[in-house]
Design a protein around this nucleic acid. Structure first.
Lengths: 207, 207
DNA sequence: TTCTTAAATTTTGTATACAATGCAGACAAT
DNA sequence: ATTGTCTGCATTGTATACAAAATTTAAGAA
């Protein structure tokens, strides 16, 4: 990975990496001095990196954020609201080039039914392509933040991949192709609600 | 104003204040040393305050953010999405106590038809009360952020208060009272879209 | 033992010095 | 006149020292 330029950027990338991989587990205290030494910079850039992660929601009061089920739900609901809207926009305005990309993503995910890392990547790609159709950076950004938080959980979920997920993607893609916003929106909502319930079910198993 | 506690909090409050009052105009460069001296703290807390404001969207690359019309639109659309949802939730679930508060806010705004500062306050209150009904801190927070950005503009707009605004509030309130989510959502959407267009029209006058 | 409180410690907050970077204007070369 | 690059200045980035606050540990009393 190319962790560019400034010490702060390096610190940010490294800490973030540790958090999302689960290497720094939820609840772990982030001690500036320790991290500074570990990364090989001074406390100053580490501080700023932590602040950034705090704003981003991955860190809460110097601890790695550990979302409870309520918080997971809240983030998911925010995401659903935007993505349903995005699906409607996509069905209305998506140009053919983009539609091709979307179909490609669906096809690819179906092709690699066993490699779960690859499925995760294509899954994310599918959703990103749809969210892009809002043409609204604020929404795109918000979804991205929600995904980060949700991912703190779904590492576990990803492994137990949910049945039906790929078919639902295909169905949404079809509704967009048919230029049916109502249907696309409805299918997206059902899809994400199912994802949420599945995720919650697994999380509750773990606790 | 009570600017409590740490130097960083003081710096944050003071700088934010200057920005939202328009005292620091859009595009102005924020120089750490100058601000530090002005506020009476060292550069360190000022830096962190600026970073925070950057995350919040009020500052962009050390300059006071000056949203263009596209950006204003984007923020507004995000807000609309959430508030329409909130209105639907409110119509479905709002308890009587909260409904009373809402009615009170509408009444009060109508009572002070001349004092524009007071109208702004009651206007905000009306929307906040509805957004609260999402019961979703993530959404509440997001709307609050959108409002900050929008307010960078609407200082101008506020002065030319839009006709019909209060009646629309009353109508939304009524739809909620009638427990009609579809209507409440639709009215809220129309209301905010009208606000957006009005705001854009004024902004374009200014340029 | 368990609870309180005080001391010790760890950790964060703040100031400040110095280094690196970027940027504006001056001057030279074409 | 245009381009280039050099110089000095303004600003940000980083490290570090010290102060304040928070947290842990230990000791003593109920």
């Amino acid at each position: 990975m190319r962790t560019g330029g400034t010490a702060q950027a390096i610190a940010y990338e490294k800490i973030r990496e540790q958090i999302v991989t689960g290497n720094y587990p939820g609840g772990m205290k982030l001690i500036e001095e320790r991290l500074a030494e570990e990364i090989g910079v001074s406390r100053t850039p580490v501080r700023e990196a932590i602040r950034r992660l705090e704003q981003e929601g991955l860190v809460r009061r110097k601890k790695v954020f550990k979302p409870g089920t309520k918080e997971l739900r809240d983030h998911f609901k925010m995401r659903i609201l935007i993505e349903v809207h995005a699906a409607q926009m996509a069905a209305t305005y998506m140009i053919d080039d983009h539609l091709e990309e979307l179909k490609e993503a669906v096809r690819k995910a179906q092709a690699v039914r066993d490699d779960s890392a690859e499925i995760v990547r294509e899954n994310k790609r599918f959703h990103d392509l749809i969210v892009r159709e809002t043409r609204n950076p604020v929404m795109i950004d918000t979804v991205s933040r929600m995904q980060s938080i949700i991912y703190l959980f779904s590492r576990a979920v990803v492994i137990n991949k949910r049945p039906g997920l790929l078919d639902e993607h295909a169905a949404i893609c079809e509704a967009i192709t048919e230029r049916d916003p109502e249907k696309a929106g409805r299918l997206m909502e059902e899809h994400l609600e199912a994802d949420l319930e599945f995720t919650l079910a697994i999380v509750e198993l773990e606790e």
